[in-house]
Design a protein around this nucleic acid. Structure first.
Lengths: 340, 340
DNA sequence: AGTTGGCACTCGGGAATTCTGAGTGCCAGA
DNA sequence: TCTGGCACTCAGAATTCCCGAGTGCCAACT
């Protein structure tokens, strides 16, 4: 049904439309691409492509634009992931290498991604659920108040103030700290709570209540999955470039960017960095964003994806370039996380 | 020159223009406000106000709109800071009270502020320069690598990986940790570096190099003023409401929001929470944002302002309401920081 | 003095209208 | 199966028209 030439025509339409932002007609198509046939022939092919639902006409006397289905075919079959130039790779490496801590890595990544793709970039912080405990620290604030600090292998730091029912001696505190760390360091956060249930038994009657209280706060902190909604966003200014229909594309997107929970559903489950997920138009799980596409992938130390990053943009975007950039950034970030 | 009635007219113009978004003419003005005079009289007053530069005509056959100078007079002389309703105050209190840590406080504040004012909200993280050290922690990662964690009184956490020139015994590490904390806890971060210069002397020759290295990283961390550029932004979606001239007002603002350094110059120096700073149009230190106003104030535990928060919006905004909201949020955040 | 009604004048911007050319579908011929 | 030719369509730019909100000014009034 769709011979090679028709696929070539579709590819040409997608590429032209993405770069010119104008519906493309049969004449310019044969001028700009070496199709080796006349406009009339291309018109026939276009008619077929339209019938099959890959392209459409905004209005009778205009050229064709790809439909979501058309982009889908393009992404799946008509293009391969571009590889970045050496200069770009080096730029990524040097830009990310200056990062001093996790926050810095995330912020640099999001800026970089926005810059490379000229789209809105989103980077999710490593999920606590998939991190392990690096260290737990207890810092005295006052005699009735203590700061619980939890440091994860991915560099995230959670802190909670604990109100103490009764004061705690320094040596008891030291003991608790030691026990706590031997119990949970290296463990998944999800296991942490269950690993410490027996700890209060190791203390004198008087201190049990305090210890229990501290452990309760710890359990609460690791269970608090609101924290896994943490994301960084960049490149919002790039929204202005797809200025055309403000209300239909920019407004809902700006609103979605405020709702981090929504963003995470857009990014989807963290996949391996080598697998780039593309969601096009109506495939995006949010009907307000029917004019939007998402390109995302997972990242994390080694091959263990601990979170997702990606970009959001108009369905009319340069998919090969976006996929390449997302992939490259995810790889570099993963590498950095492996080292740290 | 400007008698009371002329000021009333100006106030009426500002209020009407802010709520209707339309240039206001002499006729509707007398209809909507009890000025007790005829349109003709109001016209005469308007002519004077225009001559003095407080209002202007977009074009000959239109009503008047306030100039920056007009808004300035309005803010300075014609309005007092509204006080929020009891319900609003309670809403603020309960919304902010659920915060578990600094990040949470900042994010909640920025959302709250955006919601209350229906503008773009900005909250600067407490500046390190004005914070004191609460605790310094050294966590071993590998024998050649160590994590330096710095916790401030305002709840900010800085971390740095230290590459060790040679391994460090556990007891030496413990000793260093203790010395380090007695030396810097409670001190300003700016003093921290100088407080520890003599520490290496307390260690054996072999360990001096390692200790020096660790202290160097600490010094670097406290000196790194890039960290004071940390801000949270919320309510970007509110930008869509002043949709009119996209290029002149939204685009530059979106761009500015990406540049955190620029934002900080907008917010300005942290003032006492009771002093709300208003910058109107051209008074904003960035000519691209000539159609934008900023309402900001400082916040911090007690009366010591450690950072700034505020909102950014079109010059045509409800200043009394914005000022009240900014002020209220700053007070509550300050209160929370005092307690933590 | 300051205030008011009357009146001629201005002009932005919405509505109606015209124009143009890019693009199409179809058909007959190669 | 491809191609050149041709009549047809129609969105959007350009043009024109028109209305009425709003003004400034002046003479009269308090």
């Amino acid at each position: 049904m769709l011979d090679d030439r028709k696929l070539d025509v579709l590819r040409a339409i997608v590429e032209d439309y993405v770069s010119t932002r104008e519906p493309v007609g049969s004449k310019v198509l044969v001028e700009r691409h070496q199709l080796g046939v006349s406009p009339a022939t291309v018109r026939n092919d276009m008619a077929v492509l339209e019938e099959e639902g890959f392209i459409t006409q905004p209005h009778t006397s205009a050229g064709r634009i790809p439909t979501d289905k058309g982009y889908r075919l393009f992404v799946d079959k008509l293009t391969s992931v571009k590889t970045l130039s050496g200069a770009e790779k080096r730029a990524i490496a040097t830009f990310l290498e200056g990062a001093v801590d996790l926050d810095d890595v995330v912020h640099r990544s999001v800026r970089l991604l926005a810059q490379l793709t000229q789209q809105v970039a989103i980077v999710q912080y490593p999920t606590l659920a998939r991190s392990t405990v690096r260290h737990v620290e207890l810092v005295t604030i006052t005699s009735a108040r203590l700061l619980l600090v939890l440091i994860t292998s991915t560099g995230r730091v959670e802190q909670r103030v604990v109100e103490l029912p009764s004061p705690l001696e320094d040596d008891v505190l030291g003991e608790l700290r030691a026990h706590l760390n031997t119990a949970v360091v290296g463990r998944r956060l999800s296991e942490a709570a269950s690993r410490v249930t027996s700890l209060p038994e190791m203390f004198h009657r008087d201190d049990k209540a305090v210890v229990t209280q501290i452990l309760a706060v710890l359990a609460e902190a690791v269970a608090d999955n609101r924290n896994d909604e943490k994301v960084a966003i960049g490149g919002t200014a790039n929204l202005v470039r797809f200025g055309e229909d403000f209300d239909r594309s920019i407004k809902p997107l700006l609103e979605a960017l405020e709702e981090h929970v929504v963003l995470l559903t857009l990014l989807g489950e963290a996949t391996s960095p080598s697998l780039v997920t593309v969601r096009i138009g109506h495939e995006v799980p949010h009907e307000q964003l029917a004019a939007t596409s998402v390109v995302a992938t997972g990242y994390g130390p080694g091959d263990r994806a601990v979170a997702t990053l990606g970009i959001v943009g108009p369905t009319r975007m340069d998919y090969p370039a976006s996929m390449a950039a997302v992939n490259a950034v995810a790889r570099y970030v993963s590498k950095i996380l492996s080292e740290a």
